[in-house]
């Protein structure tokens, strides 16, 4: 386990989906980090990592939006991102996105400081919670890019497994995509619909009372589907869940 000494300060990049649709998840992540004695700085000029445009082939647009973020993190502090796919975009794709442009070096430097929220909480802060919640069975969905680019699933599992009263269950085809994929779910609603229906069913059939995920896109996708079907089963962001279990209910 690679435990680094906790920094005194970190930046927080909230991501565009959390900003507008799930701000509480962002706030909860901030609370969890600050509770561990780390000062969280939220650059007010931030917007989006550029991923929606990037994955749509609109590379110039992605670059313009991403470039607007590059100046927001002047200090050498880590940049915590509460969404695996956005963290992956910033860490792994920004260097490519800016390759051969005057911003390349800066983009690489910033990318080098990106750390996904679960990774940070577990491996940098070595979060040691006291679980105050009732016994609960929980399923976990990890976004695909977070899983494959950031190993987020392992970190998420490890954090949850530190909660004494939470039983984590594996759902069928856990590693399979929920069908979000940004514009994919809008462009190919038939296929994406079949995928999210299967994912929602697998999570429900796992015997869990709810699910968590550290990716806002997946969460909106799965919850949006469950709600459309009138289902009461739902998921919440990992940060929200962890905070609730440890007495910090917002």
């Amino acid at each position: 386990m690679s435990q680094k000494r906790p920094p005194a300060d970190v930046y927080f990049f909230g991501t565009c989906l959390i900003d507008v649709f799930q701000p509480q998840a962002g706030l909860d992540a901030v609370t969890l980090i600050e509770r561990e004695g780390v000062r969280v700085h939220y650059p007010d000029a931030q917007s989006c990592c550029g991923q929606p445009a990037y994955t749509s082939g609109e590379v110039a647009a992605a670059r313009r939006v991403a470039r607007a973020q590059l100046d927001l993190f002047p200090e050498a502090w880590p940049i915590v991102v509460p969404s695996g796919s956005c963290a992956g975009m910033m860490k792994h794709h920004w260097p490519t996105l800016f390759a051969g442009t005057p911003d390349e070096a800066r983009a690489k430097e910033v990318a080098g400081r990106i750390v996904e929220f679960a990774d940070f909480l577990l491996n940098t802060l070595d979060w040691q919670p006291t679980d105050l919640g009732q016994p609960l069975t929980l399923a976990v969905h990890t976004s695909c890019s977070a899983r494959r680019e950031m190993n987020t699933h392992v970190n998420g599992w490890a954090l949850i497994d530190r909660l004494a009263n939470v039983k984590r269950v594996v759902h069928e085809r856990e590693a399979e995509c929920c069908g979000f994929g940004g514009v994919f779910s809008v462009r190919h609603p038939d296929i994406a619909g079949a995928m999210v229906a299967d994912k929602a069913a697998a999570l429900k059939d796992s015997g869990a009372a709810q699910f968590v995920t550290a990716d806002c896109g997946c969460m909106m996708n799965i919850n949006g589907k469950l709600a459309k079907d009138g289902d009461t089963f739902a998921g919440e962001h990992l940060a929200t869940f962890l905070l609730k279990r440890t007495g910090g209910a917002a």
């Binding site: 695909c144 890019s145 899983r147 494959r148 399979e176 994929g181 296929i191 995928m195």
Partner: peptide
């Protein structure tokens, strides 16, 4: 090329 969620599998 758009018929993928880019899940990476």
């Amino acid at each position: 090329p758009t018929a993928s969620s880019l899940c990476g599998a």
